[in-house]
Design a protein around this nucleic acid. Structure first.
Lengths: 162, 162
DNA sequence: TTCACTGCAAAAGCTTTGCAGGGCG
DNA sequence: CGCCCTGCAAAGCTTTTGCAGTGAA
């Protein structure tokens, strides 16, 4: 137990996210609305790596009239205040969002067949990155490290069939 | 000397690229055209990491009537036959192409201010990736590893000014 | 002569934006 | 009551595609 509410992804839960967003909204003179609450709830009660399309569907189960523009705008807000981050895998398809909060940095293994996404985090790679940046005089602020291929299940299926 | 014509990027030169593309074109029953030659020349005689926009400009210096569709189609051809590869940095902006040929795999450091791109390649990272893939049962076919931040020059400017 | 290629323009797919009305503080 | 937010539709961007005419082999 860490004293913070977390779900299976190690992310903050919907309730806490709403509190943090409220704080951000207040600090910026923005307004809390029913639609924003719906989006935040839908997002934080779902799994990680949610597509805009899935998110819109989830929101519309509660209120079919929420527009996609509002969902995009709310997710932009969540990204700005650090509660979510946007990802673009496969160099194609739309944006996927993942909860951010105070979660540790991580990278991704992506199955190109079933689109499963697994997170990983490796200190020796982070260390090597620091060395590379130093060698080139770069001041690195962020990075993206994605491994594409077949997950265990899809890899096994390939082997079985072929 | 390796016996192969190479430019400063370690990529094959325009002449050799044209030969290889001709071979591919012949093998597929396609046709060699003036426009394709223009695109290939423009691409291989330019630096690495060329945007579609820059490429189109370069091609049009020679023939202003070449359409962007043709440039896209030709670059797709070059990617298919392994002479080029498409990249999408910064999660925004358009596609950048880089010569591929028989060049060694590499990754990128990208300056978020001046958009300079530096290539790197690190065996210890490749090794760590293999270990991670193994641990998760993944069969990795490709990866993307990008470090974003300020290059030496921009980093120094920041420090000076602020 | 045949069939791939080209230029043009329209379409596609994702995301943002302008606007007029609605609602939070 | 002021101003932010919302839904809708239209616009933006990059890339692809349909089509009729052109050109390589």
């Amino acid at each position: 137990m860490t004293g913070r509410a977390r779900n299976e992804y190690g992310t903050i839960d919907a309730q806490r996210a709403r509190v943090e967003l409220s704080r951000y909204i207040a600090s910026k003179g923005l307004k809390q609305t029913r639609q924003r609450d719906l989006v935040v709830d839908a997002f934080f009660s779902a799994g990680s790596h949610l597509s805009v399309e899935e998110l819109i569907q989830r929101v519309r189960r509660r209120d079919a009239r929420v527009s996609s523009a509002t969902v995009y705008r709310t997710m932009r807000l969540l990204c700005e205040c650090g509660l979510a981050s946007a990802r673009h895998f496969h160099d194609e398809g739309g944006t996927l969002y993942e909860p951010a909060g105070d979660r540790h940095h991580h990278d991704h293994l992506i199955c190109t067949r079933c689109h499963a996404i697994v997170e990983f985090d490796d200190e020796s790679i982070e260390e090597a990155q620091r060395a590379i940046a130093l060698r080139h005089g770069f001041e690195v602020h962020s990075h993206k490290h994605e491994l594409y291929g077949l997950c265990a299940r899809c890899s096994k299926q390939s082997g079985d069939v072929v």
